[in-house]
C-alpha cells in the first residue's frame, strides 16, 4: 500500500458515498446514468469474485464488500425505490457496445487464460469505459447538479491517483501490470474533458 493508492481508494469510496447521499437525500436519481451504475456493478462483481478464494488483507476484503454493496445499493435506489425519477430519455448509451468488445478483448489479451483471470481482465477493460453512459448523459442534458459533478470528479480522480500508484510501484517495487495501466490511462483520459469543465467553470447550472 502507498499514499497514492490509499488516496485513490478514499476518492473512490467518497464518490460512491456522494452518489448514494445525493440519491437518498434528494430522493431522486435525476441526471444519474443507471446504465453506468449497472456497468459498475458488473465490474465489481467480475473483479471481486476472488473475495472467496484469496485473502489479501482485512482492508482489501472490507473495501471490496463496501464497493459491491454500494453499487448494488445504488442500483436498488435507482431502479426500484426512486424509479420514478430515473431519466430514461437521456440515459440511452448502448452499453452492449461496451460490454461485448470488453468480453472479446479480455479473451484475446490477458495474463492467463483462466476463469478468474479472464473475469478480472474483463472487469478492468469494462471499468475503463463504464463512465461513458454517464458522461454521454451529462453532455446530452448539457448540465449536471453540482453534487453530480463532485461525484464525477472524485470518481475520475480515483483512477488518476492509481496511475501515480502504478508509477510508484514500478520504481519502488518494480511491480507493474500493463493491462491495468493501459486501461487506467484510457479511463482517466475519458474524464479529461469533464475535469476541464469542472475546474474551469463548474459545469452545473449552465
Amino acid at each position: 500500500m502507498n499514499v497514492f493508492r490509499l488516496l485513490g481508494d478514499i476518492s473512490h469510496l467518497l464518490a460512491i458515498i456522494i452518489l448514494l447521499l445525493k440519491i437518498w437525500k434528494t430522493r431522486s436519481c435525476a441526471g444519474i446514468s443507471g446504465r453506468s451504475q449497472v456497468l459498475f456493478a458488473v465490474v465489481y462483481t467480475a473483479r471481486y469474485l476472488d473475495l472467496f478464494t484469496s485473502y489479501i488483507s482485512a482492508y482489501n476484503s472490507i473495501m471490496k464488500l463496501v464497493f459491491l454493496a454500494a453499487s448494488y445499493g445504488t442500483i436498488y435506489l435507482m431502479f426500484i425505490k426512486f424509479k420514478a425519477s430515473y431519466d430514461h430519455n437521456h440515459d440511452t448509451f448502448r452499453i452492449e457496445f461496451l460490454i461485448l468488445p470488453c468480453v472479446l478483448l479480455s479473451l484475446l489479451i490477458n495474463h492467463e487464460f483462466s476463469p478468474l483471470e479472464i473475469l478480472w481482465t474483463f472487469s478492468i477493460y469494462l471499468e475503463s469505459v463504464a463512465i461513458l453512459p454517464q458522461l454521454f448523459m451529462v453532455s446530452k442534458t448539457g448540465e449536471a447538479e453540482s453534487i453530480t459533478s463532485h461525484y464525477l470528479f472524485a470518481l475520475g480522480s480515483y483512477r488518476a491517483l492509481y496511475i501515480l500508484n502504478w508509477i510508484y510501484r514500478y520504481y519502488a517495487e518494480s511491480h507493474y501490470d500493463v493491462i491495468a495501466i493501459v486501461a487506467g490511462i484510457v479511463q482517466t483520459v475519458l474524464y479529461c474533458d469533464f475535469f476541464y469543465l469542472y475546474i474551469t467553470k463548474g459545469i452545473y447550472g449552465q
Binding site: 482489501n60 478468474l116 483471470e117 511491480h175
Partner: peptide, 10 residues
Amino acid sequence: DVNLDDKDEL
C-alpha cells in the same frame, strides 16, 4: 508475470 495472488489492488 503478473498472476492472481499479485492482485492486491482493488
